[in-house]
Nucleic acid binder design. Structure first.
Length: 314
RNA sequence: CGCGGGGUGGAGCAGCUGGUAGCUCGUUGGGCUCAUAACCCAAAGGUCUAGGGUUCAAAUCCCUACCCCGCAA
């Protein structure tokens, strides 16, 4: 198939790679503009751009697509069989969606119609879902509302968002390659999404990242796991942000107010949460790298009775 | 030129109102013990990120470079 590929972050790399390896003709790759990151003064290419350049595929990075006559004309000129989209990062206008004869196909990292939107993996982990997956769908005007073509699921278990992210990226790529022949010949079906079952997974905000110790240890642990490895959950400790990377909910009663540190040892830091105990195992303080609690305690002190809080100023 | 923190023995830190380096852990050897992530004794291990400068003398002050990290995007 002759394909235009649109994607930006790491998640979108495996599908692109699989397409190339399986003999599909990727005529053009579209990705977000390079962001000028000042720290280190380096302009970083998007992961998809890096991969595209590896294969010698032309890359386009339009600031905006809607109303961009030149860009639309360019796509029309290529006249692709399909446009495949994976985490491109922006909504696509209808005028673009209508171009390819086999449609625009999106890889979404959830089991639609649940978790439409920007942060499906994060939200799935945080909410304690048993399983998640990837769904292939035809794109239409709405956000992740199009007809579904195929899906595959996986158990979440104790996996972090980072682990699921990588797993789903590969899973999505495989699913795409397997499904594409059917799409090309027109024999693959399409299933409408049941809108009444739909849920929305909004982007993670700063407020989402701040741990609330009034919640149960299980809930807090899921938040920490769901925000690993990006952007990370945190709590305030002595006026600084302590990022929390790994924790475990313990079946112990706490007799101190939520947020109080009840024990510090090589095994970790015990904190009261929701009347019970959460064991923090891996943490990170500003300017430092992430480290296991046992490692952190060598050279630093954390005392029983100190408090992890929500206040930015305390 | 967005803001800020930092680069010191294998790991985490202290030292930074200048006089060639210290702590905790780990490692190695020995001891003790029924036993232990226990305890005791001893040892090895550092061009203090790199390059300049100031000075009788710099890890410590100044400049430059590189790298890491937090925030903001």
């Amino acid at each position: 198939m002759r394909i235009v590929y649109m994607g930006t972050p790491d998640f979108a790399v495996p599908p692109l790679q699989k397409l190339c390896e399986n003999g599909h003709r990727v005529e053009l790759v579209v990705t977000q503009p390079d962001k000028a990151r000042d720290r280190g003064k380096k302009v970083q290419f998007t992961p998809v751009k890096e991969k595209a350049l590896e294969y010698g595929i032309e890359v386009l990075q339009p600031e905006k697509i809607k109303g961009n006559e030149e860009f639309i004309a360019r796509i029309k000129a290529i006249d692709p069989d399909a446009i495949i989209v994976a985490a491109y990062g922006k909504l696509l206008p209808v005028e673009l969606l209508q171009i390819p004869r086999r449609g625009c196909i999106n890889i979404h990292a959830s089991l639609l119609p649940k978790y439409r939107g920007a942060a499906p993996i994060h939200r799935s982990v945080i909410n304690g879902e048993e399983k998640t997956g990837v769904t292939l769908m035809y794109m239409e005007e709405g956000l992740d509302t199009g007809d579904m073509i195929a899906a595959r699921s996986t158990k979440i278990g104790r996996k972090t968002t980072a682990e699921l992210h990588d797993e789903l990226a590969v899973m999505g790529a495989d699913l795409l390659i397997r499904t594409l022949p059917g799409i090309e010949t027109g024999i693959s079906g399409r299933t409408e999404q049941d809108d009444s079952m739909a849920t929305y997974a909004p982007m993670i905000s700063k407020a989402d990242e701040l741990v609330d110790f009034s919640k149960t240890p299980e809930e807090v642990e899921r938040l920490i796991r769901g925000l690993n490895s990006w952007p990370g959950a945190y709590a305030m400790y002595k006026g600084e942000r302590m990022k929390l990377w790994e924790a475990e909910a313990l079946d112990e009663k706490a007799n101190k107010p939520d947020g109080t540190i009840t024990d510090v040892s090589k095994n970790g830091i015990k904190v009261a949460a929701g009347g019970r105990i959460l064991l923090l195992k891996r943490i990170q303080l500003p300017g430092k790298k992430a480290m296991d609690v046992s490692e952190y305690l060598v050279g630093n002190k954390i005392e029983t009775g100190e408090v992890l809080g929500r206040s930015e100023t305390a």
